[in-house]
Design a protein around this nucleic acid. Structure first.
Lengths: 344, 344
DNA sequence: GTGCCTTGCGCAAACGTTTGCGCTACGTTA
DNA sequence: TAACGTAGCGCAAACGTTTGCGCAAGGCAC
């Protein structure tokens, strides 16, 4: 049934009339094995095309040299480049990467965590679902000493490891730019209320307005569920005001794409009748006619590879016996406004 | 050093004064274990939060319930949606997915194959590097009975399992559409010569022209390395002809984006002075001003999930003892022209 | 010649789970 | 009562590798 004629340490041992332990040590160039024996072992191993059975080692060492990555959606460039960053970091340390897409579905996220726990990954990197508001499913990983590092979409608490992006820097640059251009009525198209990023953007928006001594007008703050129709409704709502804002901060570039379509449909011209600054810095703007003044880059790759670094650090520190619990690894990367009026 | 107080079958057995085999069987509801014992085992397992150590099972069963996916680049939507297709198929059969990006680098591809072999994945899905022209690194997987299924970018030989996309159907639709619009001089911007897809497109292009009794003009066939500058050079070359083609088939949508930029820079208008049909059906066209007449969809998700289905089939048939070698699983999906003049 | 150190290797256990086989104790049937 | 069947469980091996410990043989110093 099984093709069990794969070369193993035992087989090499049998052929050379030595013990398996000797073979194992010889293969690792252990000093207690004589040079002659070591060479003979390597020769036979070579001939047989021996390769260590990692599953046996994983089992014995209680390590799988595998990290799990849980992200909402690979089709978003942000997450696919995040994954690339993770893969690079993992490969450099000889770790494998197994992935799970939550598709922004909480139940799927839970199931993926469960699966990765069963698979005994050595650590998990997570960017949360839009729906996630409880974190008990991650606590279950502690039982197996599986460290977790969150990135970008992180829980709103401090007893975790995470890498996130500080939007203040980018948003402040954005609003400063708009003010310098003469704008004082700056609208906001925000995301769905239950998303942490939404509240965050609102707070920063308010903070930045205050910093520029601008008034806060509730009527030019609208929101969208991120669905296409809703995006258009949001911008239409702003356009239908008596005095529409001539500059709008938009939740992200995807929302903005729909907004721009709506603006055109209304017979208005982007960057003349109305200007935008958004979040994501999508590469496609380079090819578009109507573009935002700027987009705020959140550095997917940098966030994720730093998170991966944290994770590897935690994995290694868990392997060495530590008296004191290591402190939480946390870092916040500054976002940065990418100015398209300069670049292009 | 190890936190070895994780619940195991042995621990449950110890607590109940039964043997480990009894516990194992009870947990699987084996009929030879009495109802009372079975219930007691489940109760204790529940209390301890027992979860089977999969690494032990993987090791014992010589299966990892993991498939490896090797693709060039996740940042291309084609491959990220391919990966999604694979993940869905795998998840439905309780398989995990580990990924490796070759980044179109042959050496990396070889290294990834090596790594996945060591990891003892149950099977591998591959979309080849642009550089790959030898396949010995995949042969080494046979030794471990690890089946391989290629998709989209497949080797040019028949002794393999693969799912590919037939471009004839889409290209024929495209040229037919152009002919119906009155075009008889239809150009081609092709890819780099060493890419299999390039030769394929050229052959089909010739074949389709012949089918419409159109002459073949070498001067309206150009090529690009896919680099941005080269893309623009290719279209400029066509535009500089005495009689530029008014319709051009383009290698893919990414190349076309640069071509469109060049056309605009030349003061010409897309779909008036010159029209395009391309490959990939990128979602962004929906938001663009200048779009091709159509783009040919190659169905990343369909290809990859069918390939995943093939792979799972091969994995399962390898597990059951077969006298005869199973035939190669091969399928070709028809491409399809997506007509943007209808849709939008 | 005695004691000690070093070199080079083998023994056996361990990791957690599954499974073929065998065993006991009981119940049934003739 | 003897023979037989069966329900319910345990024993032990196996998967491949690593590693602490022990042991033998040889060399060296005294």
């Amino acid at each position: 049934m099984y093709n069990n004629k794969l070369p193993t340490i035992k087989e090499i041992a049998r052929r050379l009339n030595v013990s398996a332990s000797t073979v194992s040590r010889a293969l690792h160039h252990h000093p207690s094995i004589g040079l002659v024996t070591t060479m003979r072992v390597h020769k036979v191993a070579q001939e047989l095309g021996y390769e260590a059975n990692k599953t046996a080692i994983y089992f014995k060492e209680r390590k799988t040299y595998t990290i799990g990555v849980i992200i909402p959606d690979l089709s978003e460039p942000f997450f696919s480049s995040a994954l690339t960053g993770i893969e690079d970091a993992a490969e450099a340390s000889n770790y494998n990467v197994i992935i799970g897409q939550s598709l922004d579905n909480f139940e799927r996220e839970k199931k993926i965590v469960e699966n990765m726990k069963n698979h005994r990954v050595d650590g998990v990197l997570v960017s949360l679902t839009k729906e996630t508001s409880t974190y008990a499913h991650f606590d279950s990983l502690k039982k197996y000493n599986i460290p977790v590092v969150f990135f970008d979409r992180v829980p709103n608490r401090q007893d975790i490891n995470y890498v996130a992006c500080n939007l203040v820097s980018g948003m402040l640059q954005a609003i400063t730019k708009l003010v310098n251009m003469g704008h004082s009525r700056i609208g906001l198209i925000n995301g769905p209320a239950k998303l942490a990023a939404t509240l965050q953007r609102l707070e920063i928006y308010i903070q930045c307005l205050k910093q520029h001594h601008l008034p806060l007008n509730q009527d030019i703050i609208v929101s969208t569920t991120l669905a296409k129709a809703d995006n258009r409704k949001a911008i239409d709502q702003l356009l239908s005001l008596n005095e529409p804002p001539a500059a709008v901060i938009v939740f992200n570039d995807y929302v903005l794409l729909d907004c721009i379509a709506a603006v055109k449909a209304a017979g208005l011209v982007v960057n003349k009748d109305i200007s935008f600054i958004s979040f994501a810095n999508l590469p496609i703007w380079e090819y578009m006619e109507s573009v935002p003044l700027a987009s705020i880059e959140q550095f997917a790759g940098r966030q994720s590879s730093m998170a991966a670094g944290f994770l590897l650090q935690l994995i290694n520190s868990a392997a060495t016996p530590n008296v004191t619990e290591p402190p939480f690894l946390q870092h916040i990367i500054d976002s940065e406004m990418i100015d398209y009026t300069i670049a292009g």
